[in-house]
């Protein structure tokens, strides 16, 4: 842990001197986690490349401000969450999903599998799509809190730190969002089945 901390400090130090290899190294170390978090918060969408780039651009622009008080990963996640928040606010909540990631890929994928397995995967994809349709109706703060906690699996305290709120406010947002999803699931059998099913 301490070794990773020192390694982060030295890497940031190299980045601050403008060393391109350090820029690449920092991006490669953290891109997977940041992309996964953005994906879980926003769902698959056409702007993902730009969002990932924007997040890291802001990371590099603010790197001098990282005071090594939090871990570098947490600090980068905080920057990524801000990028996601701004995106959600500017988009008026609704995220443009990427059709290629859904229908076309499903059709190609299903032909190679059994009918039962294909149907199950299709159900899962439909469920995911409907879940994000419901999430589109939530405010940016509620959506962030819900997705980071329920989908990305982060503890409430960490989510609160990432979104810059108290734990109580975060817990309330997650609870409200969950109620909203459950209400939608009550009227939507596909979403209900997806939410009650085990992992696909």
């Amino acid at each position: 842990m301490a070794a990773a901390y020192v390694e982060d400090i030295l890497l940031v130090d190299r980045c601050l001197t403008g060393e391109p290899a350090a820029t690449r190294e920092l991006f490669r170390r953290h891109r997977g986690r940041v992309h996964a978090s953005l994906y879980r918060v926003l769902g698959g969408n056409r702007d993902m490349d730009d969002l990932l780039q924007d997040a890291f651009l802001q990371v590099f622009q603010s790197l001098r401000g990282w005071r090594a008080e939090a871990s570098l990963a947490t600090w980068i996640d905080r920057v990524a969450v801000r990028v996601a928040y701004r995106y959600l606010s500017q988009r008026g909540r609704r995220v443009v999903t990427d059709p290629l990631a859904d229908d076309d890929a499903v059709a190609a994928d299903d032909s190679a599998h059994t009918a039962a397995g294909g149907a199950r995967r299709q159900l899962a994809r439909d469920g995911v799509r409907r879940l994000y349709d419901v999430l589109d109706e939530l405010g940016a703060a509620s959506r962030l809190a819900f997705t980071l906690h329920e989908i990305d699996g982060r503890p409430l305290a960490e989510v609160a730190e990432l979104v810059g709120s108290s734990v109580t406010a975060t817990k309330l947002r997650v609870w409200r969002a969950r109620k909203r999803v459950e209400t939608a699931a009550a009227a939507d059998p596909v979403l209900r089945e997806f939410l009650t099913e085990g992992a696909p």
């Binding site: 989908i151 699996g153 085990g198 696909p200």
Partner: peptide, 9 residues
């Protein structure tokens, strides 16, 4: 509701 890590990235 068990969604943790169920959304495949």
């Amino acid at each position: 509701m068990k969604l943790n890590k169920r959304i495949q990235v």
